[in-house]
Amino acid sequence: MSWLTRSLSSFSGRKLLAAVTGLVLVVFLIIHLLGNLQIFSDSDAFNHYAKALHDGPLILLGDIGLAITFPLHMAMVIWLAIDNARARGPAGYKKHGTKQTRGFASVLASKTTLYGGLVLIAFTIIHVWHFRLHHEEMQAFAAGGNRGYVIQELANPGWGLLYIVGSLVVGWHIFHGIQASFRSFGVNHPRYTPLIVRTGMGLATVLALGFAAIPVWILLG
């Protein structure tokens, strides 16, 4: 094995890739949410934003970026998950418990990050098909362009609910994911680390609520 494959296939190397790609995806989510939030404006801001985005080079950059980071993130995490599952050995525990005194949510989030991620794979495929691949149709949508199309789709309780769940799972996934990424870089500081942890959890909460607010708002009319 060469130095690079050895380094990157080590647990820490894989974690590093997963963390870098994970944080890139978080940045993407922030931008995505900022764009989405314009839907609350009654003016054409959302449609202008969508048009500008799709006419410019940014969308291509985004697509390529996501096409690299998303699968890479998945691949690293799943590769780790396979090794992790094997490490427990042939027999598992009959009874599960913990001795942690941290908050229940933090502990649960840390143990279910992977499952959240698996749900997100499905959600993302649906979401990309649902909006990204219907982009032309959305822009040409007679009743209010992009914005109208989104509102029409999410007003359907099935879709609306799916997007609410999806938003919350994203938040849950990165609730632990953001701080874990920094840990994977080896960040450790008596003062800054707690700050990162709190910021990460706060950001996760904001993103989850922000994304979920849209279908909720639409469903409530």
């Binding site: 992790n84 490490a87 942690q100 840390s110 143990k111 632990h176």
Partner: peptide
């Protein structure tokens, strides 16, 4: 296995 930072 690897570390998932559950802190258990």
């Amino acid at each position: 296995g690897a570390c998932s930072w559950t802190q258990d």
